[in-house]
Design a protein around this nucleic acid. Sequence first.
DNA 1: GTGTATAATTAAATCGGTCTAATTGGAGGA
DNA 2: TCCTCCAATTAGACCGATTTAATTATACAC
Lengths: 347, 347
Amino acid sequence: MKKVKLNEIARAAGVSRSTVSLALRGSPLIAKPTAERVREAAQQLGYVYNRTAAALRNRKTHTIGLVEANFKNPFFAAMSESVEREIELRDKALLFVDSAESLERQQKAIQLMLEHGVDGILLCPVKHTTPEHLEILKKAGVPFVLFSRYIPRFDADYVGAANVEGAYQAVRRMIQLGHRKIVFVGGEPFTSPWLDRVKGFKKAMQEAGIELSTHWYFCSEVSVAGGASKVDEVLQIQSTPTAALCYSDTVAFGFMLGLERRGIRPGRDFAVVGFDDLPESKLWRPPLATLACPPSRVGSMATRMLIERLDGDEGPPRRVEIQSILVHRESLCPVMEHGSGITRIDE
Amino acid sequence: MKKVKLNEIARAAGVSRSTVSLALRGSPLIAKPTAERVREAAQQLGYVYNRTAAALRNRKTHTIGLVEANFKNPFFAAMSESVEREIELRDKALLFVDSAESLERQQKAIQLMLEHGVDGILLCPVKHTTPEHLEILKKAGVPFVLFSRYIPRFDADYVGAANVEGAYQAVRRMIQLGHRKIVFVGGEPFTSPWLDRVKGFKKAMQEAGIELSTHWYFCSEVSVAGGASKVDEVLQIQSTPTAALCYSDTVAFGFMLGLERRGIRPGRDFAVVGFDDLPESKLWRPPLATLACPPSRVGSMATRMLIERLDGDEGPPRRVEIQSILVHRESLCPVMEHGSGITRIDE
DNA sequence: GTGTATAATTAAATCGGTCTAATTGGAGGA
DNA sequence: TCCTCCAATTAGACCGATTTAATTATACAC
């Protein structure tokens, strides 16, 4: 049970500790037969490489920090998966924290990562994160890449979806389909994707000369429950909306379930569009129209950008937007010809 | 940008490195005013504690390894969240790997964790894991706890749901409601929860003297798509089933969506029960009956068991089963009185 | 046979805290 | 004044691998 170290191997193989170290790392300095002998001895003794010791000397832990803001969201889960793949390929490890939309937790996580000496950090900042909160990362000199969310007026590497453009596309299509009363449902305000999606939404409405109603956006937790919880509020608007752009597919699912509960059929009585194109979106009844921006692309792009930084890329910060493509499915229906077709339960 | 270390602080505070170390860790050996002075100097200089260096000396990394088998499953995501909470409380870090149901990846993950010197490991073994695969953990002397899945004939700490009992309850209720043709849908075979759920299923059927049809179980990926993909096969059975116990809520969602697509209404024409009681299950249309076993309970229980091991608990391995409670909701309907009520598409 | 170039190996310093054993300083007692 | 005792502080070995500079061994040329 006692841990085997280089010295034991050295003794067993009849060489010095230096030789063992070099041999195990595959250094060309060591003669082949010697290296082979060393490797066998290590194997024999059940040697386990001690990365901690190596890290101390190397000033490299071969560890990447991943700080998620909300990983119960399936989009982030899928993203994390691709991050993992990229990390695994490079024989690195992932230090993981879900800040769960808590600024305090995020800051503690960052501190933790710094203390562990991660080589780099992938961060999706929680709402209300300011440049000052992230200044510590720059001071510490740790390479980091923001993903999914950026911080205004904070110059840093970033990879995320083209949110303004995506929302704009979706709303334009809704308008083409005859909708005029459109709302934006769900999402955490004070995050860049929310602001950008709302921006794209407004832009499309303004270009079409459509006035926004007094209440035209509704914030919520990004989840099925969050979407479901907003249905009543939306239906209480003076002149009932006929379409909703939802912050995410999960929100859209909840919203559709809520509509159905009120006897309103999404995809016929009410148009719904989400964001993310989750695998189940096309299986829904009705299939959910959505803005597709593959989470795996975001994840692997962010990871690769970070790796390049680790490899010494000193260029100015880069901002990469990944295209959001509108996937038109049944839930995105035209407006009903004669009246709204909606029977309000409370009437 | 240069890293501040104990020596710098020592110089600044006019004390020795030892004093700084002791002071920062809050040792009672150091006089209060001195400790305060040291802490201020550290603060001033922007010192970041180097856990790697400490770990080398301490033989403790304050790091826990979490190896998931399938964390795209929301149940695991929720579980991981509670693991994180417990870990965070104790100021430890999480080294995370999703083995994604790949044995090779799992073994590589275990190796990685050992090399990083994690203090303990939480592991949900992938299918086909044998005692031999995990022997390395025992040899290495690293405390570990299995969660959600156990390995037959492998004596180790384990926390998971009461699967046999849960499935048994569900099927008994189905039988009480008049169902006779019942199938088990979804899930990865060769994992203990699958085997146990199938076992409970069989037990209830046998006790009721109901014969199982030739094809009565259907394996699938644990996801909405997995559930949806099995609908056709289920409906092709000679005498059409009237009820399905699904491996998970996600599978049940997919299965229900598939049924609807075929014009069969779950909760009226077909009874469906899932496992997990996800937050959205009660929001579904119809609300999904399910076996509830809070993922947060599993996660925090497993983590605490591991922590106790780290704290020196040397007792024999413990197996903890967390009760699964049948939550009766609309999707668990009685069998239709006159005929199956199902119009088969292919007839 | 000697000298030199080259290949293979190794000694030893190093990474940054930790912690025990040793040292120092000051209070109090005789 | 000297001694004892205890509190506060510190020197220095240590954790386990890495890596450079130094050393030894080997080959080859003349």
